[in-house]
Design a binder for these strands. Sequence first.
RNA 1: GGGCUCGUAGUCUAGCUCGGUUAUGACGUCGCCCUUACACGGCGAAGAUCCGGUGUUCAAAUCACCGCGGGCCCA
Length: 773
Amino acid sequence: MEPKISEKAWDPKLENAILKKWEEEKLYDFELLDNNYTIDTPPPYPSGRPWHIGAASHYAQIDMIARTARMSGKNVYFPIGIDRNGLPVELYTEKKHGIRMRETERGEFLDLCKSALDDLEAEMIQIMKSLGLSGDFKNYYRTDSEDYRKFTQETFIDLWKKGVIYLATRPNNYDWVSGTTIADAEIVYEEIPTKLVYMKFITKETKKEIIIASTRPELLCACKTVIVNPNDERYSDLIGKELIVPLTNNEVKIIPHHSAKIEFGSGAVMVCSYGDQNDVALFRELQLDEVIAIGLDGRMTEVAGEYQGLKPKQARTKIIEDLENANLVEKIEDISHRTPLSERSRIPIEIVPMEEYYLKQKDSLEKMKKLGEEIDFYPNMHKQILMNWLDSISIDWPISRRRFYGTEIPIWYCNKCSEPFVPEPGKYYRPWKDKCPVEKCQKCGNTEFTGEERTFDTWMDSSVSPLFVTKFNRDEEFFKKTYPTAIRPQAKDIVRTWLYYTLLRCEKLTGKKPWSEAWIMGYGLDEKGMKMSKSKGNAIDPLPVIEKSGADTFRFWSASEINQGYDFRCSEQKIESTRKFLSKLWNVSRFLSSFPVIKSGKLSESDKWILSELDKLISVCKEGYSKYNFFIPSTAIREFTWNIFAAQYIEIAKARAYGIGFTDEERDGAIFTLHKVLSTILKLLAPITPFITEHLWQTLYSQDSIHKENLPDIENVTDMSKMTQLLAEFNSKVWNEKKQKELSLKDSIKMDVPEILSQFKKDLIAMHNLESN
RNA sequence: GGGCUCGUAGUCUAGCUCGGUUAUGACGUCGCCCUUACACGGCGAAGAUCCGGUGUUCAAAUCACCGCGGGCCCA
C-alpha cells in the first residue's frame, strides 16, 4: 500500500492552514453549558517590543491547560484579553514622541497612548494566535475599553457604597518623575553607592558633641528626634536630653528605641519625615509632627530654608559642603545603600504625605488567608508567596494614581463645600472632561463642580478580570454558571499584586473566591540564567523563533524543558533542536501510513508487551495532566515514542506487519497494534502539540478534529514492562554483533533467542534473520 | 538581619517520601555508518567531588545537623 504521507519531515508551514481550518470550523467557540471550565486568562500588557519569549511560553502552557480540560470532557471557556491601563505605555509614549505627559493636552496624550497600544497589541495577538491558543479571540476584550472601564468604575462605586473606600493623608511612596503615588508592590530595591555623613550634634545643656551618621543629611530640617538603642551604654546618660541639630539649630530629644542598631554608624540615629519606612513607623509610633521637606515636584520645600527648590540629591551635596565649612562633619564614608526605587521609572522614591483614596484590606487579611487555604496551588510551594505577603501587609491599599492613562476615578467635588459626588453605576465617566451628572450639590446646593483628575491603580482594573469575563452584574445566568472560575494561571512575580488583589476585590464584591485553582509559572531567563532585558540586549524576540521553528516545536520545548513553577532558560538553539522529536513522530506516522487501519487482529506476545507499556504511558501522562505539569507527559511521550516504540517495537513488528512468513491474522495483530499505539500517542500529545497531532490524526484516522477526542483511558492489560529492558538488550546485542562482523542488518546470523525471551521468539527470529546454532 | 525556596555532567532532568543498581533520559559535544519510516536518522564514546562539611549506618545523591551559593520576598 502506498504511504499516505510522503514528505520526509514535518513542515511547520502547515500550521497556518490548520489554524485557518480551526477558525472556519469554529472549533474553539464557547457556548454556555453546565459543565463550564473557566480560565481566568491573564490579559498581557503591551509594554514594548519585542514581547517576552518567556511570556509566549507562558501562554503556550496556558493553552495546554485549556486543551487538557477540553480533552477531559469539560466545556472550556478560555477568554482572551489585553491589559491596556497603566504607567508603562505612558512612559513608552513619552519616549517615542519625545514629549512629557504633563506638558501635553490630556486628550491628545491619551490618543497617542492608544495608538501605541494598538500597534503593540496587534503583534501580541498575532503571536498568541500563531501559538495555536484555543481561546475566545472573537470576543477579546481590552481593559481600557469603555465597557471594561465602566465595569471597573461600577465595582468602585459598589465598594464606595459599602464604605470600604476612604480618603486619608498618609506618607506615601512617591515617584516624582512619574508624578504618582505607588504601592509597596511597585518598589524595587537596588544597592546604590552613597555617602554616609557623620554629623556633629551638640547636647543643649553640656555642649557635648554627639555624632550621628545619616545618608540623608538634606533632611536635617525635618529631623524630629534622635533614637539610640536602650542597651547602648554610650548614650544611657543622655536619654531624655535635648540635642541641637546642626545648621538648623532646632532642638530635638534623645529617645531610646530598639530599632536603633548599636553597630550602625555611631549608634545614634536621626528620625526625619521621611527618610525611609522606618521613619514612617517611628513617626506613627511616637506621634511626632511631620514636616514636609520634599514636595510633590520632588524638590525641597520652604522648611529647607536656603535649600528650597533644590532636588534632594543637589541639596545633599550643598548641605555636606556647608556642614564641612562649618566644621560640623566628623567624617564621610562611601557606602553602598539598599535604596528603594520606583519599579517603573527607576528613581529613588520619596516618602511624601499625600491625600489618596484607600481600599480597606487590613480587616480582610484573615479572610484572605482562609480563601488562600481553599485554593489549590500548582505547584503548591508557591502558595507561600501569597501567605508571606498576607503576613506583611501593614497598610490599606492606596488605589488612586496621579496619571492619565487609566480608568478615571468617577468622582466630582462641589466647588463650594468640597462634598464628593459619586455617580450611579451604568455609564463610563471621565470627570476630567465630562460635566458632573447632577445639577446641584446635594449638600450645599452649589452648581459648580470640579472633576477628579486621578485614575485608579492599574490593579483596580485587572483585579476584576474573573468578574468581567463571567459577566458579573450583567448576565446573571452566565455568571452563575461560570463563577467561581476554575483556574487562574499566572506568573510568579505578580502573586503579591494581581493574584492577591483579585482575591481581595472578588471577595469584597461577591463574598466568594474567584477560582478553585491557581497555577503559577516561573520567569523566562536567557541561556545563561540572567534576566532578559532590552537594555542588556539579551532579549529574544519570540516571533521569528515561532515562525522559523513552528508553534508545535516551541510548545514542545516549553513543555519538556520547563519544570513546573521554576524559572527557565530560553535558548533558540535548544528550541530548534526540539523539532527533531516532531520529525521522529512524523516519520513513525509516515511508516505506519503505508498500512491500513484495521479494527482487530491476533495479538502476539510482543503486541501485548507494547500495549502494556502504552498503558503505563497513559497513566503517567494523565497523572501529569491532572497536575497541569506538562513536563511529565511531554518527556514520557518522547521517551516512549523514540526509545521504546520506534527503536524496539516497530523493528520487532516490522517483518510481521509486512506479512512475510506470518499468517494474515498474525500480520493484522501487528498492524492493529501499530495504529493503536500511534493513535494513542497522538491523543496524548494533542494538548501539547495541537498542530502536528491534528494533521497526522486527520491524515490517518479521522475526518474530524483530534481536539474533539478525549484523552485515552488505560485498559488495565497485564503488565509486561519487565521485558522491556531484556528485549532492548537482546536487540542491541544482535545489532552490535552484526556491526562487528560487518554484516548488513538483513543478513542472517547464528544466534539463539534466550529462554527468558522465548515468548517473542518468532518475531525476533524474523526481525534479525536469526539462524539457530 | 528575617522568611520562603532551590542547588545532580556545558544545559534541562529522573532518582530523594520508604538509604543498597555500573546515578535515568534528553539536548549539546566527539567518532563511525546514507541499513528500503526517518542523516531533523542509526550505532558508539567522552562528560557528574550528586554544592561543601560533619554525623547516623555495614552502606548516604537519598536521613539529621552545620555551613556555602543562587533566586524571590520582607525588614
